[in-house]
């Protein structure tokens, strides 16, 4: 089984986000980066399917040179080769842009299964995978918690709202977006890290992909800003003991009346 995993490199969870002067992006110099968390579960699921059924796991990512560390990390965990779509300009909020580039870069390879995380921790649109399915002409399902492969068909457990799930079935090739928590992502071994250095990394630019790229560029980012607070939060300061005492003073009524 030939599996493609789409990875995105995003700012690390603990990063302090500071805005650029034009208020159109977050300053990169302050950030450290990591693989988007839901994508790490997609990668793990792909590696497990390969161990079960044989085949190949390929990772694709787009962005500037820094994202190669994330592709190498995936190779160190066991992916077979990487595709780096080199883009210099800031990414577009119109996700047909990213999906169009990925589709153009991988279309010829005819993957049996494409996995992505359900959404990214930065833009969080949750759209790139679904649009990629459209551009590749694949059936798809989203927010998947479990996968079963049966010959040329795939069964997937979709998460629904409020603790419900739905099993769906579709023919392969297909695309699934993966929910966090469906497996335990592995760490790279020392041997894996060593091996990753010699694994194939194909680099391709949007210009080289040229006319194959679809995308609408129909959404424009006008401004990024720190959210305006909707509630007047009272912050309680002092030592931990002082802050705790102040808080208890303010919520005494609720505390005393609650059941024991």
């Amino acid at each position: 089984m030939k599996i493609l995993v789409c990875l995105k490199q995003v700012s690390a969870k603990e990063s302090t986000l500071r805005l650029s002067e034009d208020s159109l992006h977050v300053r990169e110099s302050d950030l450290s980066f990591e693989i988007n968390e839901p994508d790490t579960f997609a990668l793990e699921e792909a590696l497990r399917l390969k161990e079960q059924l044989g085949g190949e796991v390929v990772v694709v990512s787009l962005g500037p040179a820094r994202i190669q560390t994330s592709i190498r990390e995936a190779l160190a965990k066991g992916a077979d080769r990487g595709i780096h779509i080199e883009t210099e300009n800031a990414e577009s909020v119109d996700r047909t842009w990213a999906a169009g580039l990925i589709a153009a870069a991988v279309r010829e390879e005819k993957f049996d299964l494409v996995l992505t995380g359900l959404q990214s921790d930065d833009l969080g649109t949750g759209q790139t995978g679904v649009i990629l399915a459209e551009f590749l002409g694949l059936p798809h399902a989203t927010i998947i918690m479990e996968i079963q492969i049966e010959e040329s068909r795939i069964k997937a457990k979709r998460e629904l709202e409020g603790g419900w799930f739905e099993w769906v079935e579709m023919p392969l090739p297909a695309l699934l977006t993966i929910q966090s928590g469906l497996n335990k992502p592995r760490y790279a071994s020392l041997l894996g890290i060593k091996k990753a250095k010699s694994k194939e990394m194909r680099r391709v630019t949007p210009v080289e992909l040229g006319a194959e790229v679809s995308g609408t560029n129909a959404l424009r980012l006008r401004k990024i800003y720190v959210p305006v607070k909707s509630k007047n939060t009272e912050f309680l300061d002092g030592t931990p003991k002082e802050a705790a005492a102040k808080l208890v003073e303010r919520i005494r009524r609720e505390i005393v009346s609650s059941p024991s």
Binding site: L17, L19, A218, L219, L221, K223
Partner: peptide, 20 residues
């Protein structure tokens, strides 16, 4: 028409508009 949505898990907000 200028629309807003959240970014970075709610740590930032963004204003966007449609083109075309």
């Amino acid at each position: 028409v200028i629309f807003s949505r959240q970014l970075y898990q709610g740590k930032l907000s963004a204003d966007l508009s449609f083109e075309g």
